[in-house]
Design a protein around this nucleic acid. Structure first.
Length: 344
DNA sequence: CAATTTCA
DNA sequence: TGAAATTGG
């Protein structure tokens, strides 16, 4: 589920207002998966249309994108392509977790434990190619660009951020920092209020920025060393990480020996003999990306949006129209700006 | 998650 | 009216 750098970074709060006029490259798979997991009824059932097709991902991407557009933010969604060979183990692991969650979901429903049922249901979330395609259709109708990454979406989004085509990479995962993203935005949500799982407690979740430069300065390390720390903790390409190593020991080992390679040679840390550290480092240092993309915010096609969401997926026309109306003014501005940019 | 409705 | 609860699909 991505590298967990939570304990090693210090995020700074950011408001939607501060993001006005800025391009954000959103990890599309990460966003859709989040919607699919979270937008559910108390018993864990996702939103569905009259034909039984899941619509949670569409509700999420429509309202989230509408809100970003209304705030004057320019989103571009980046979707995963073919995963690196080294990701196979992680993918198999995820499938296994989902299978176990499906069993637990059924059991929890049978004993009437709705809290456990919802939790298990979230873990069963499976994002299909068809669902991604539906989400892309909605984005096209909203005039919002999406990009197909050749491989990892976070790598492509980060490539665009490094180039300056985007101001920040948006994801809940920290992997983009290993890819070298200068800015990572997490919790890019609108409502900012979230219930703590299992407890009747609400906490404020506000969007936050993690700046790579700050992370490196604070930890007094280089990006190369951050990648090594990531590998010690576990990435999608070595999901188990190193036995007995958490953030503190990982940082200490790198401080002491300078690199993972040196720490291994000095027997400071012990690795699974099949682990190819250099191959993993290479994914983060030289990821497969493309510059074959165009970023244009073409303006909203309300009828197309309604045709998809209301005509096909049973969304309420009143609700969709209200949301479309809210963003009308702002999208006209965006379209005007995009078309003007061609002249300069 | 976000929108809408209900409630204090 | 703002926060809490419920609905959405």
């Amino acid at each position: 589920m991505g590298v967990n750098l939570r304990d090693l970074v210090t995020p700074v709060a950011v408001s939607l207002e501060e993001l006005k006029g800025k391009v954000v490259a959103i990890d599309g798979y990460n966003a859709l998966y989040q919607f699919l997991a979270i937008i559910r009824q108390p018993d864990g059932t996702p939103l569905k249309d009259s034909r039984g097709r899941i619509t949670s991902h569409l509700s999420g991407i429509f309202y989230r994108t509408a809100n970003l557009l209304e705030a004057g933010v320019k989103p571009v969604y980046v979707f995963d392509g073919k995963p690196p060979e080294l990701k196979t183990k992680e993918i198999e692991k995820r499938i296994e977790v989902k299978e176990r969650a499906a069993v637990e979901y059924k059991a929890a429903l049978e004993r009437g434990d709705m809290v456990a049922a919802r939790k298990a249901a979230q873990a069963t979330s499976k994002l299909t190619g068809e669902m991604v395609g539906q989400a892309k259709d909605v984005l096209v109708a909203l005039g919002v660009p999406w990009i197909q990454a050749p491989s990892e979406g976070e790598a492509q989004a980060t490539f665009m951020t490094k180039k300056g085509d985007a101001w920040a990479t948006v994801s809940q995962d920290y992997d983009s920092l290993l890819f070298g993203a200068p800015r990572l935005i997490r919790n890019l949500t609108i409502s900012g209020r979230r219930k703590l799982p299992n407890k009747p407690v609400y906490i404020d979740i506000e969007p936050e920025i993690v700046r790579l430069e700050d992370v490196l300065l604070e930890l007094k390390i280089t990006r190369d060393q951050l990648i090594d720390i990531g590998i010690l903790l576990g990435t999608d390409f070595n999901p188990d990480g190193f036995k007995g190593i958490g953030p503190k020991k990982a940082l200490k080992a790198i401080e002491e020996f300078g690199s993972l390679k040196a720490a291994l040679e000095q027997k400071k840390v012990e690795a699974d003999p099949t682990l190819d550290v250099e191959a993993i480092r290479d994914i983060f240092l030289n990821p497969k990306t493309t510059d074959d993309y165009r970023l244009e915010w073409g303006g909203i096609n309300g009828n197309a949006v309604k045709e998809i969401l209301c005509g096909s997926f049973d969304f309420s026309p009143e609700r969709i129209e209200a949301a479309l109306h809210r963003i009308e003014k702002e999208t006209k501005e965006l379209k005007k700006q995009s078309s003007l940019e061609k002249w300069f």
